Each structure stands twice: as C-alpha cells, then as structure tokens.
Amino acid sequence: MTTLTSGSRAAARTPRGAPARPGVRFARVLVAEWTKLTSVPSNPWLALGTVVAAAGTAYGLGLFVRPDDGRSGSWVVVSGFVLAQLGFLVLGAVVGTSEHTTGTARTTFTAVPRRLPVLGAQAVVTAVAAGVTAAVALGASYLATTGPRAGDAPALDLAVPGTTRALVGFVVVAVAVSLLGLGLGALLRRPADALVTGVLLVFLLDLTLSGNPGPVTDTVRALLPSAGTRLLEDDAAVAVLDAATRGPELGAWGGAAVLGAWVVVVLGAAAYRLVRHDVR
C-alpha cells in the first residue's frame, strides 16, 4: 500500500523542468479570435472596400450639395456612411458565423467550455476592427470631399453645434452596427440569415417606412436600429428631424440609445443560445 501511494504521488507531480500547463484565460481567447479575424484574406479587402465605399459615396454626394440647401460640412464628410454601414454589418456577421460555417464550433467550445469568453472576445476584436476601419474611412472621406467643400458645398466648421458629435458618431455607430451584425451572426449562425436580417433592420425598413409617414410608421422608425444614425447629424439637422416626425422625438442621443439597446438585446440573445443550446 505504501509503495502504491508513493508511486501515485510521484506520477502526479509535474516533472522537473516541464512547463506549467496554462489555463484558458480570456487573453488567450482574445488572441485566438484576433488571429482568426486577421488570417482570413477576405477581411482586409472588406475593410478596404468599406473605406472606398465611404469616401466614394461622400465625394459623389458632396458634388450635389449647395450652401443654401440646409446641409452642413459635417454631413458631407459622413454621408458615405449610408453605404459603408453595409460593410460594417458584414464584418460583424462574418465573425459571428465563422465558427459555424467553418465547422470549428465544436473544437472551439471544447477548448473553451464556458463559451461566453469566445463571444466576448469576438465582440472585442470586432469593435476594434470596426473602429479602426471607421476612423480610416472618416479620414478618407474628409480628404475625398476637400474639393466639393472648397467649392459649392459647405465648409466643415467644428464651431457648428453637433459637428464634433457627428464626426465621432461616424465611428461610434460603425462599431455598434458591426456588433449588431456579430450578434445576429452568433444568434442565427448562417451568414445569409444574419445579413438579410441586418440589412432589413439598419437600412431597408427605415427606407420603406419613410415613404409613408404617419404616427405608426414614424414610431416604428424611431424604434429601429437605424435611429442611431441621428448621431451623424448636427444639432440643426436633428431639430429638423424631430420637428418633422409624428412619432417620438428622440434627439441625437435618444437615437443612439435605441441602437445601443438593439446591440445589447441581440448579443444577449446570442449569448443565451450559445450557453443553452448545442452547437453545430
């Protein structure tokens, strides 16, 4: 008995000089998710396409803006978001569905059995990638609209109330849209389902309902994620929107709160499904 006990203890001890086996820490999960994101060749092209879409759209729309049409210089710079938001939505959806489309979900969640750290790490890397892309897109849009703003388009004046918020809002809303795409991807687990749902929520529903204004349609529009784009408007433009609506007057920060609520709810639903249901 003594011999067996001593042998068991000896076997249980780590051999001298052997490295200690690291546990599953969030930092390691974060590095793994960042590696996955940056190792896919299409992702840099997606970021570049998003930047080009933002700058190109801003330049094109800036050519038609005149000083007396009520548009501000900040609107000219951030106007490319109307198309660039699709790129941010795709980014989030791709990250959210990657484990399920590549068939690595079981392997990943066997290595990280608590599962939620994976979703948390995906949220961090998505937000960072979207934030950097949005900042570059904003700078590119500023440079692309230099000509129109020097001609008939209004100049960019930071003294105009709400201008700074509109510029910063470009990055903030881009990150929020990408996180919404991530949540939809992790919840629905199919890229097509996530993208179709995301496009409906952030673009098509608002565009469709705007053609039939009224108390009901304006209220529904105020509750859609697209309400977050109010952050991209200066104070005068937000006041015009609130004066024209027959629904809730959200203001800029109210619209941001609606978008933030959508992100929290969708990510929460994705986390619930991830923990409570099997992965395939």
Rank of each mutant, 00 (worst) to 15 (best):
Met1Gln: 15
Met1Trp: 15
Ser6Asp: 14
Gly7Glu: 15
Ser8Ile: 14
Ser8Asn: 10
Arg9Phe: 14
Gly17His: 09
Ala20Cys: 08
Arg25Tyr: 13
Arg28Leu: 09
Arg28Val: 06
Glu33Tyr: 10
Thr35Asp: 13
Leu37Ala: 05
Ser39Cys: 09
Pro44Gln: 04
Leu46Gly: 02
Ala47Leu: 09
Gly49Met: 05
Gly49Gln: 03
Gly49Phe: 09
Gly49His: 02
Val51Ser: 03
Ala53Cys: 10
Ala53Asn: 01
Tyr59Phe: 13
Leu61Arg: 10
Leu61Met: 12
Gly62Asn: 05
Leu63Gly: 12
Val65Ser: 11
Asp69Arg: 10
Asp69Ala: 12
Asp69Cys: 10
Ser72Gln: 06
Ser74Val: 10
Val76Tyr: 10
Val77Ala: 02
Val78Phe: 08
Val82Lys: 11
Val82Ala: 15
Gln85Tyr: 11
Gln85Ser: 14
Leu86Glu: 08
Gly87Ala: 05
Gly87Phe: 03
Val95Gln: 11
Thr97Asn: 01
Thr102Phe: 13
Thr102Lys: 09
Arg106Ser: 14
Phe109Glu: 01
Pro113Phe: 06
Arg115His: 04
Leu116Ile: 11
Pro117Phe: 00
Val118Tyr: 06
Leu119Gln: 01
Ala123Pro: 06
Val124Phe: 01
Val124Glu: 08
Thr126Cys: 06
Val128Tyr: 03
Ala130Glu: 02
Thr133Gln: 09
Thr133Met: 03
Ala134Met: 02
Ala135Trp: 01
Ala137His: 09
Tyr142Gln: 14
Gly151Met: 12
Pro154Ile: 00
Leu158Gln: 04
Val160Glu: 12
Thr164Ala: 15
Val168Arg: 13
Val171Trp: 08
Val171His: 05
Val173Arg: 04
Ala174Arg: 06
Val175Arg: 01
Ser178Pro: 05
Ser178Asn: 07
Gly181Gln: 08
Gly181His: 04
Leu182Val: 05
Leu182Asn: 03
Ala186Asn: 05
Ala186Ile: 02
Leu187Cys: 09
Leu188Asp: 04
Arg189Phe: 04
Pro191Ala: 03
Pro191Ser: 07
Pro191Lys: 02
Thr197Ala: 11
Gly198Arg: 04
Val199Thr: 13
Leu201Ala: 13
Asp206Met: 08
Thr208Ile: 13
Thr219Met: 03
Thr219Pro: 00
Thr219Asn: 04
Pro225Ser: 01
Glu233Tyr: 00
Ala237Lys: 12
Val238Tyr: 05
Val240Cys: 13
Asp242Lys: 01
Ala243Asp: 14
Ala244Gly: 13
Arg246Ser: 06
Pro248Gly: 04
Glu249Tyr: 12
Gly251Asp: 07
Val258Pro: 02
Val258His: 02
Tyr272Gln: 15
Asp278Met: 11
